[in-house]
Every structure is written in C-alpha cells, then in structure tokens.
Write a protein that binds this DNA or RNA. Structure first.
Length: 430
RNA sequence: GGGGGGAUACCGAAGCGGUCAAACGGGACAGACUGUAAAUCUGUUGGCUCAUGCCUUCGGAGGUUCGAAUCCUCCUCCCCCCA
C-alpha cells in the first residue's frame, strides 16, 4: 500500500489539490511537507495532535516534515473555523506558547540532522514593512476570491454560508495572506511543495498555492485531513472540563488515558486508524473483535495504551495504568507516598496533624467531611450507612469506625473515597 | 395610574391554621446490575452530640393565635389585564 493509500485507508485524507498526481509525486522521491500550528496556548491538545501525527507519518515514510509554529500568524488569529473574532495574544504569551509547542513537538518528530525542521514564521514575517508586504504579497490577491473563501463567507453571514457570523476585522481578513506567504517562503528556502492541514485550512492552503504560482510559477500541492469529530458531532478531545492537553501538567497521563478508554464504540475504529500507528491488519482484527464482543473493549484499551505511550512515554503509561487499576477498585497497598502522589495527582488533598490518628478522635464521618467528600456530618453518615465509604478502596461499613495508623496506605497518606469515583487524600504530617 | 395573580427546599410544583422538615416530579448522591456504555431497579436528599430530642427553613419585616408555609398589615420583586 502506498503512503497516500495508507492515509486514505486511515480516513486521514479529506481533500487534495491533485487527486490523480499526488500519489505518484509522493512515491517518486522524498518530498518536503509542512503543517502549521497555532500558538494559542503553551501546550498542544488532542486537536493538534492529529496534525503532528500526520507529519510523523510523512517522516516515517521517508519524507521531510516542517513543523511551523505561527509566531507571526498567532498575533493575527486565524478566522478559519471560528465564529467570532478572537482576542489578540500578548507578545510575552506568544513567546511562551511558541517555546512550549516547540518542546512538545520533539516527542513526535525527529529534528536531528537531516530530519524534520522546526520553523517560526515570525522569523521571516517580523521584519517586513507593511508597504513591502502590500506590494509584494497583497498585489497577488483578489479580494473577490478572498471573499469567496468559506472562512470569510461564514463570518460575513453571506447567503449559502454555514453560519450567520458576526463580522470580522481587517486584521483577521489578512490572516490568509500571511499563511499563503509562509508556504511560498518555505518553498523558496526549503523546497517545500506540499502543505497539509485540517479541513478548515483548505482556504488558506489553496491561497498559498495560488500565491506560489503567481510569484514564482511554483507547482505546489495541498492536502487536508478531516477534523476529528465524534459520532455525536462534537469535537474530539474536548470534555466538559475543557480540552485534553498533551502537557502532563494540564492533563495528567491518567486523565489522558481515561479519555481514550471512554471512547464510544462508534468512534474508536476511526481513532485507531487516524491516531495510532498500528498496522491495518491489526486494526481490522480489533474491529472484528469489537463487533464480536463490544463489552471486552479491547479497541479502547489498545487505543488508550498506544496514545498514552506515544504522548507520555512508557513511564507515563505505567502510572496511568496503575492509577486506572486503583481508581476502579483495586485495594491500595504496597505503595509509598511518592507513588500515591503520582497516581492521585488529580485528587484534592487535606493535611491533618498526625496526633489526630493516634488519639482516636478522627472518625470516618469526620474524615469524609474534612476532605470535602461529604458536605455535612449527616451527609457523611448517610454515605457510610449506604455502603459508599471507602478507605484505601476497602469499604468501611461501620458508622463508628475510628481511623488509626493502621488505616494509612503509606507512611503518611490515607486514600478516602465516596461512591465509585470521588477520591480525596488525607495526609498526616508529624 | 386602576384591577387581578404570584413569590415554597438545587429546579419545577403541591400544601391554604395543628397530624409540615413540608406531597409529587426532575436533578443530585449512595447501592445493585453492567462494558469505566445506555437503560433499569432500590435507598437517600436542611443542620446538630442521630434521639418518636433540639435548632434553622416556605420573598422581607411586624402582628393575630396555645399553635402559622397556611390568617392580618406593611414592604420588596415578578407576571397578566385595563389606561
């Protein structure tokens, strides 16, 4: 199977600018391909992961990927796929974000000699004067054509557009020119002839191709992947608590792992194809196993395992798996304070003096209230009486249980739980 | 400006002198079942030293009464109709 055929099989091809020629062009020799990433935050999230993984596939197939961080375009704000004008980021935020993204990208792409290249479009855009830009770049754009792009149409609320839109500023209107010029610049300096992006980037990509042809007669290609959406139409990688980030400080490996474990049956096949590097045969086996026995959830487990390892490494995966075992019932034993701290990184904790454990003054009811698992003693009592109170994942049934050092999970930590999922730590300082 | 209706616990909504910590539904919480799904079933759902005990709650402030969410007065806010 050719590289492009593999992308197509995985559902990663939404559109290309040359459906007939691109395949042969890519097979002929190693090519240089670029994709851009917006520095809207100091970490990538699941949405941008897809793009990085596509670049990674290009690299693995012997091509040369360029990851572009939009230090310049990030100052403007891409209107594509956005229904509202965006707030501008401050210079300091941008710099921090660019640095954060660059660091994360190293995990996915090999930037060593001759490998992938990391560029920041601020490096060639920052020194331009407005007049120069208008003469050299702006002159090549027809406003009529720009107005016809989806990203603009939807914001202007024109007939036939998907949304009514609330207008857009001249600043955002100009975004397309900057991104178009990026492509031309990368072609001139790095021999890049292919830009890849999410399907919402189609307008910007074709703008770059047009500009390349006008300025240099360059033959450029474009390719888009579909946006990651779930079967219910919502965006992949978003939860009610916000986005799923790649930065373990923002989204712990456990939460990351859990997000994928909870993938709907209807979505997991697509995710395996688009996000993992498993062979087609293996993915088809998983499809078959899922159809046979969906309750087994081997697909979800495999997806979560692969992605967590890819993003957080073997170590992060181990913590996530250990945390999963514990959060779903395994009794907590033989762990030290550090391990508990890692596993329960997302869980609230409270400190109490060690004396409370020794003098027999801390009942299970008091402890539940203390850590916030119950909002009153009556509530705590109810929880215990209904069999919903656990210490170190062992049910505490007696209402008058007094906590003592033997209830500690490690030297100084006790793990309290109410119901199936709500955990809190109680730490006893000496 | 005139007339009418209303404000109840997280939300909706009963209650209209004692048997009201307040029906019922939703939500939430806990349990069972289950695929860490969906559905279903059971229990709980003001606070306290958990007891047919006390305290705080029915828009706010007063009053009548042995006793008020329930009656009266004033105030605040909301809705409807007529000007």
């Amino acid at each position: 199977m050719s590289f492009l055929a593999d992308l197509r099989w995985r559902g990663l091809l939404h559109q290309t600018t040359d459906d007939t020629g691109l395949e042969a062009w890519l097979e002929a020799e190693p090519r240089t391909v670029y994709a851009g990433f917006d520095p809207t935050a100091d970490s990538l999230h699941v949405g941008s992961l897809l793009g990085l993984l596509v670049l990674r596939r290009f690299q693995q197939a012997g091509h040369k990927p360029i990851a572009l961080v939009g230090g310049a375009t990030g100052m403007i704000g891409d209107p594509s796929g956005k229904s509202h004008e965006r707030n501008l980021l401050s210079q300091e935020d941008l710099e921090r974000n660019v640095a954060g993204l660059a660091e994360q990208m190293r995990q996915f792409l090999d930037f060593d000699a001759g490998g992938a290249i990391l560029v920041n479009n601020l490096d060639w855009t920052g020194s331009w004067s407005y007049l120069e830009f208008l003469r050299d770049v702006g002159k090549n754009f027809s406003v009529n054509v720009m107005l016809a792009k989806d990203s603009v149409k939807s914001r202007l609320g024109q007939p036939g557009a998907a949304t009514t839109g609330d207008g857009m500023s001249y600043t955002e209107f100009s975004y397309m020119l900057l991104q178009a010029y990026d492509f031309v610049h990368l072609h001139q300096h790095y021999g890049c002839q292919l830009q890849a992006g999410g399907s919402d980037q189609w307008g910007n990509i074709t703008a770059g191709i047009d500009l390349g042809r006008r300025m240099h007669g360059a033959p450029l290609y474009g390719l888009t992947w579909p946006l990651l959406t779930k079967s219910d139409g919502t965006k992949m990688g978003k939860t009610e608590h916000g986005a799923i980030w790649l930065d373990p400080q923002r989204t712990s490996p456990y939460q990351f792992f859990q997000y994928w474990i909870n993938t709907d049956d209807a979505d997991v096949g697509g995710c395996l194809r688009m996000l993992t590097e498993l062979e087609p045969a293996e993915i088809e086996d998983l499809d078959a196993a899922r159809a046979e026995n969906p309750g087994q959830r081997t697909s979800q487990r495999r997806l979560a395992t692969e992605l967590t390892r890819l993003v957080h490494g073997a170590e992060g995966l181990a913590v996530a798996q250990q945390a999963t075992e514990i959060f779903f019932g395994a009794e907590i034993a033989d762990l030290d304070d550090t391990q508990l701290g890692q596993i329960f990184a997302d869980v609230p904790s409270q400190q109490l003096p060690r004396g409370r454990l020794l003098d027999g003054s801390l009942t299970i009811v008091d402890a539940l209230v203390q850590v916030g698992l119950a909002k009153s003693k009556g509530d705590a009592r109810r929880t215990v009486q209904q069999g919903g109170a656990y210490v170190n994942n062992r049910r505490v049934a007696a209402i008058d249980t007094v906590l003592s050092p033997q209830h500690l999970a490690s030297t100084s930590t006790m793990v309290l739980r109410s119901g199936k999922k709500k955990y809190a730590l109680l730490q006893f300082a000496s």
